[in-house]
Nucleic acid binder design. Structure first.
Length: 838
RNA sequence: GCCGGGGUGGCGAAACUGGCAGACGCACAGGACUUAAAAUCCUGGGUCCCGAAAGGGGCGUGCGGGUUCGAUUCCCGCCCCCGGCACCA
């Protein structure tokens, strides 16, 4: 009897893996590669079971693929820059570098204690100058190509974190990190021109078959493409032109006024022309401030006022009034719209409120009469047929659009265009703990990039953290004051740092070549390993990280450094682990620490439980009792092997001498119970393999193995230990130990060694499925009468349809239900069921 | 409002191409072993009805229809939950 002591096994095998660098890999063209990646971690201090679930999913995939013969890259690293460390420094005085390094050390230990099979030799942290140097290098390449540019614009500002936020980082009008309502500020900022790839990023989503529909939809919504037209409405006094964007140019004959957003540049100009510019400006200002607050509260009253000026509708040539309206967005389209109250609900409400004219120009195709403009209760927004539209009358909406765009083009008053919701990515952050932006401002030469040979621009060691709303780097004169690289004259450095999402947008390339000091990575190595075959992480990154990374992949591609566009072939978004119905968090006090679970039950029980409790995408509720149940399953597996060991040892065909069917003496001479075990073994191999590799349905893979274990226990009780029985069980157990090892590697390595194997499971191959063995001899076929199951027949698997029908009709239980009635119809699905209709 | 995902026992879930609904587990109940407990092993269970029992019958995958010999699965119309987007012209 060998006792099962999981905690000891954890230590033994983890030490051995570390000592042999068991998970490091090199490029090997002779083997198929598999790049398995989990989203790297922000070193917050402690990984809870919610985080850990993700690493276990990835580890099951990585360990399985290794045994399946793949060259597996499975690296890990740290998304180490970021605000929490800096905010902690403001409170505690501990430098972010110090706390971050300590957190990394602790969390690395946690992952190692879980036995996650990372190639730790490739570990990286984004706060290492050797890493962020290449952020800066890439920034300069993007600057050279116009993909990084500086502009003054109104940006999202979090008053609590005292920094700018990208649009993607504003959630429900608040800061993604702290929830504080976001304000707007006018600032000079650096932007990445992600909109240059908007089309491509959107179009590619159609072909990303191994990404969840949900994520693709979210990205499509985020990019938000709409096709339409820009049309110029000249001012009546010809002093300027107003350009509008519309998706419904077919309704332009119904455009009875023009609306300007409060941010529109023309608004300020018009103010000057009025009798009371101050009152005008004040009015506009009310809209601008009230606007955002109103939007957050969700309750927005349509407001507006007449400028007193008029523009000319270029299709009707009629003058139309120009109004300013609070609901017109300054940063979408052209910031001005043509209002068609009859066919747009917002314009309709506005027109009714301010008594503006409504003109119907679209009727439904089914011939119903046009609604009365004076009494219609709401706008009719559907496509239809044009009326009252001059030479464009009596056309289907789509056709009218085409002709009108052609007309506008010919006259130079407009063109077809595409508009995106996606905006350029503002990456400047007025904070310390991030990558310095490698730019220099010179009075004579303007904006000058830091020369490549002076990279990295190292983050200076700031010791005082105040949390004031200006860049901490501006307080370090020896950092700020430099000579201009062009003219040598006095110049200042950029003092903002980069958004940390820049760091995480390309780290998966660096893993392919983490020590390279001459370039971000060797393109040859990236060609071998990339794209990532399997990427898993939380749904919260569905837009942010995953759209930025797709953008960066294309930037690297256009720099000629990679030869693909999509960096992640398959994406799995793992569900959260809840405790007491809520997301785990320190403040709620409901964090489950993996280490306490490891001490109680060992790493394998925790790993197996988290995989078994539900499919990876599902949210799950943590329960300690479930974990205990799984721990006893592992003990049950242990005892099963332990019980059979004496029989294996005294048997000439013991497991260590050969594998699988080849050592089963006299396969033709097995009892039906022995054949049943072999059948179950191979059926389990088939199910487990498909569940892991094809479906990532890891919970049912575990269920299947549990069934096999249950059958083996039942077999052990009823069958004696004749050589064939021992061999059949040996085959089953060796398959089981190998299939279970990705989930429970420590226990299985030990069992594998116990079974007499010296090379470790890493070198063991995955069990081979044998369809001939798995094939059922006898099957149970249900017989339905009028759709209800009335009997079950046990028949040979290959019974023909005719035989099945005869047996069904002869079955006593079936005959009772037929009871002399006429059988009208017989349906036989071979090997599945017989259905009788009377 | 638009888009996406989902609704199956007390709970987590399973059901592969339309073919025995509830595998596997948790919790629970009963039993064996034990002085006792823990551990372990065995048994039970969707629900209602008839029956002392063996057994038999009805209903049952959010609701209402449809297609089909047969529907958790396909189609139509609803309800509810979760997530995303949202005065986006």
């Amino acid at each position: 009897m060998t006792e099962y002591r999981p905690q000891q096994l954890d230590r033994k095998w983890q030490e051995r893996w570390a000592a042999t660098r068991a998970f490091e890999v090199t490029e090997d063209p002779s083997k198929p590669k598999y790049y398995c990646l989990e989203m790297f971690a922000y070193p917050s201090g402690h990984a809870h079971v919610g985080h850990v679930r993700n690493y276990i999913i990835g580890d099951v995939m990585a360990r399985t693929k290794r045994m399946r013969g793949y060259n597996v890259l499975h690296p890990f690293g740290w998304d180490a820059f970021g605000l929490p460390a800096e905010n902690a420094a403001i409170k505690s005085g501990i430098h972010p570098e110090e706390s971050t390094r300590a957190n990394i050390a602790h969390m690395k230990g946690q992952l190692q204690r879980l036995g996650i099979s990372y190639a730790w030799e490739r570990e990286l942290a984004t706060c290492d100058p050797e890493y962020y140097k290449w952020n800066q290098w890439l920034f300069i390449r993007m600057f050279e190509r116009g993909l990084a540019y500086r502009k003054r614009s109104s940006v999202n500002w979090c008053p609590k974190d005292q920094t700018v936020l990208a649009n993607e980082q504003v959630v429900d009008g608040g800061c993604w990190r702290c929830g504080t309502p976001v304000e707007t500020r006018d600032l000079e900022q650096w932007f990445f021109r992600i909109t240059a790839y908007a089309d491509e990023l959107l179009d590619a989503t159609v072909e990303m078959e191994r990404w969840p529909e949900k994520v693709l939809t979210m990205q499509q919504n985020w990019i938000g493409r709409s096709e339409g037209a820009r049309v110029t409405f000249p001012m009546e006094d010809a002093s300027s032109d107003i350009e509008v964007f519309t998706t419904r140019i077919d309704t332009i004959f119904g455009a009875t006024f023009v609306l300007l957003g409060p941010e529109h540049p023309l608004v300020a100009k018009l103010a000057e022309k009025t009798n009371d510019p101050a009152a005008f400006r004040k009015h506009v200002q009310t809209f601008r401030t009230q606007d955002r607050a109103a939007r957050i509260s969700g309750e927005i009253e349509k407001q507006g006022f007449d400028t007193g000026f008029r523009a000319i509708n270029p299709f009707t040539n009629q003058p139309v009034p120009i109004w300013v309206a609070n609901f017109v967005l300054g940063d979408y389209g052209t910031g001005a719209v043509m209002a068609v109250p009859a066919h747009d609900q917002r314009d309709f409400e506005f027109a009714r409120k301010f008594n503006l004219p409504v003109k119907v120009v679209i009727v439904s195709e089914d011939g119903r009469p046009a609604p009365d403009a004076n009494t219609m209760p709401e706008a009719t927004v559907a496509y239809g047929r044009t009326i009252d539209s001059g030479e464009f009358s009596n056309l289907a909406s789509q056709e009218a659009q085409q002709r009108m765009i052609a007309f506008a083009n010919a006259r130079g008053i407009g063109e077809g265009t595409v508009q995106y919701r996606l905006k350029d990515w503002g990456i400047s952050r007025q904070r310390y703990w991030g990558t310095p932006i490698p730019m220099i401002y010179c009075e004579t030469d303007g904006i000058v990039p830091v020369p490549d040979d002076q990279l990295p621009v190292e983050l200076p060691k700031v010791t005082e953290f105040t949390g004031r709303g200006d860049s901490p780097l501006a307080q370090v004169p020896e950092f700020v004051n430099v000579k201009c690289p062009k003219c040598g004259g006095p110049a200042r450095r950029e003092t903002d740092t980069m958004d940390t999402f820049v760091d995480s947008s390309w780290y998966f390339y660096r893993f392919a070549d983490p020590k390279n000091d001459r370039q971000p990575f060797d393109p040859k190595k990236v060609d071998y390993w990339l794209p990532v075959d399997f990427y898993s992480g939380g749904i919260e990154h569905a837009i942010l990280h995953l759209i930025y990374s797709r953008f960066f992949a294309r930037v690297f591609r256009d720099l000629g450094m990679v030869h693909h566009s999509e960096p992640f072939t398959q994406l799995l978004t793992q569900g959260m682990v809840l405790k007491d119905g809520a997301v785990m968090s320190k403040s709620k006090g409901n964090v489950v620490d993996p280490d306490t679970m490891l001490e109680k039950f060992g790493a394998d029980a925790l790993r197996l439980y988290v995989m078994f409790v539900a499919p990876p995408e599902n949210q799950v509720e943590w329960t300690d009792t479930g974990l205990r149940g799984i721990a006893s399953f592992l003990a049950r597996v242990w005892r099963l092997v332990d019980q059979w060991m004496p029989a294996f040892k005294s048997n000439p065909d013991s497991p260590s001498t050969s594998l699988g069917a080849s050592r089963i003496p006299n396969p033709g001479d097995l009892t039906s119970a022995e054949r049943a075990i072999r059948r179950k073994t191979h059926d389990t191999i088939r199910r487990v393999t498909a569940d892991i590799e094809q479906r990532q349905q890891l919970n049912t893979a575990v269920s299947a193995m549990m069934e096999l274990v249950n059958d083996l226990y039942a077999f052990g009780e009823s069958e004696g230990a004749r050589p064939q029985a021992v061999a059949v069980v040996a085959e089953a157990i060796e398959a089981l130990v190998r299939m279970l090892s990705p989930f429970a590697p420590h226990t299985c390595e030990e069992l594998w060694e116990m079974l007499g194997h010296r090379d470790g499971l890493m070198k063991a191959s995955w069990p081979q499925f044998d369809a001939a063995v798995a094939k059922a001899e006898e099957i149970v076929v249900p017989v339905q009468v009028n759709g209800k199951v009335r009997s079950r027949l046990t028949v040979p698997a290959e019974a023909s349809e005719k035989e099945l029908e005869e047996m069904a009709l002869a079955d006593p239980a079936v005959m009772a239900h037929l009871a002399g009635k006429q059988v009208k119809k017989v349906v036989v699905a071979k090997g599945r069921l017989v259905s009788l209709v009377v």
